[in-house]
């Protein structure tokens, strides 16, 4: 992860959008990629305001209470209802969720 900072003109290219869309498994075609590129560039431009904020010695905050979690006791529950869980699945056979053949 680089320490690269946001440049004053964070224009996202269509190519970058296509790369990101691939990571996010979204089927974005060339045209919509351009329009997303515009939109996202505008959103990223909002970031310029925060670029000027001095955050030296400030630690990132990921949870507001900075509390620590309470752990669960290691006890297994045998209450799984596979039929109910799989009633919402698009394709199930022999208890398996089906996807197109994956070659490994």
């Amino acid at each position: 992860m680089s320490q690269q900072s946001v440049t004053s003109d964070s224009n996202v290219s269509r190519e970058e959008i296509l790369e990101i869309a691939n990571l996010a498994r979204l089927g974005v075609d060339e045209n919509t990629a351009s329009s997303y590129a515009d939109d996202i560039s505008k959103v990223l431009n909002l970031m310029h305001t925060i670029n000027n904020v001095d955050t030296t010695d400030v630690k990132p905050l990921s949870n507001i209470h900075e509390a620590c979690q309470e752990l669960r006791v290691d006890v297994a529950k045998h209450d799984i209802n596979r039929e109910r869980n799989q009633s919402v699945a698009p394709a199930v056979e022999e208890g398996l969720y089906l996807v197109p053949q994956v070659i490994e």
Binding site: A76, K77, N85, E94
Partner: peptide, 26 residues
Amino acid sequence: TESKIFSSAPTDFGHEPNSQASIVDL
């Protein structure tokens, strides 16, 4: 462990497919 890392589903092997997968595991 008896149960999974983030859910209460049992960890034992050799059961019917997806019968040991809780809503959290799914």
